[in-house]
């Protein structure tokens, strides 16, 4: 990390909500030991699926909306990132629209396959929206949709999922 500690977004949100007179936001807290599936093969042999919550979609797809959209969009992994659009209510879209790889790094992942760092890419990446206000809806709607998409991916089974939030 940098010379200064990481930005504490939980504390900053609390301060901002208090200033606005809103109730405190309850971030998801899961102090239990997380579920665990060991890697079955080294990354250099692994088939990787990208899941990114920056709000990416392709021309021809219905764009995400900004009110707790728990849907997903499947984007072919061989699609250049320059063809990817992004929409989101919560971050500065200008840099991501100039270079979608900063929130949806498919070009870079393909290059890592080419140079042998990574085994292969699953044929589709899963795009979704972060900032789902309701933890319940993230768990009961978004998470199962992503699991289903990764489970049903064409080609070899997925050995590793890389999640890229914004």
């Amino acid at each position: 990390m940098g010379e200064r500690p990481p930005v504490d977004y939980i504390a900053r949100t609390r301060e901002q909500y208090a200033r606005l007179g809103y109730d405190d936001y309850r971030w998801a807290e899961r102090p239990d030991t997380p579920p665990w599936t060991p890697l079955a093969k080294p990354v250099a042999e692994a088939n990787l699926a990208l899941v990114a919550s920056g709000g990416a979609y392709l021309r021809g797809q219905v764009a995400f909306h900004w009110q707790d959209d728990t849907g997903i969009r499947l984007v072919p992994s061989d699609q250049p990132a320059s063809d990817v659009r992004v929409t989101h209510f919560a971050y500065d879209l200008v840099p991501a629209r100039e270079d979608p790889n900063i929130v949806f790094p498919v070009d870079r992942l393909r290059e890592l396959v080419d140079d042998g760092t990574l085994g292969s890419l699953a044929p589709q990446a899963v795009a979704c929206m972060g900032g789902i206000y309701s933890v319940r809806r993230a768990e009961q709607e978004l998470a199962p949709a992503v699991v289903e998409a990764v489970s049903g991916m064409d080609g070899p089974s997925v050995d590793l999922v890389l999640l890229v939030p914004v």
């Binding site: 998801a28 890697l39 768990e139 699991v147 997925v158 050995d159 999640l163």
Partner: peptide
């Protein structure tokens, strides 16, 4: 995304 990661891991995906 942490919640999604936990669900994926519980379903057998690292």
């Amino acid at each position: 995304m942490g919640l999604v990661a936990r669900a994926l891991e519980a379903a057998g995906f690292p």
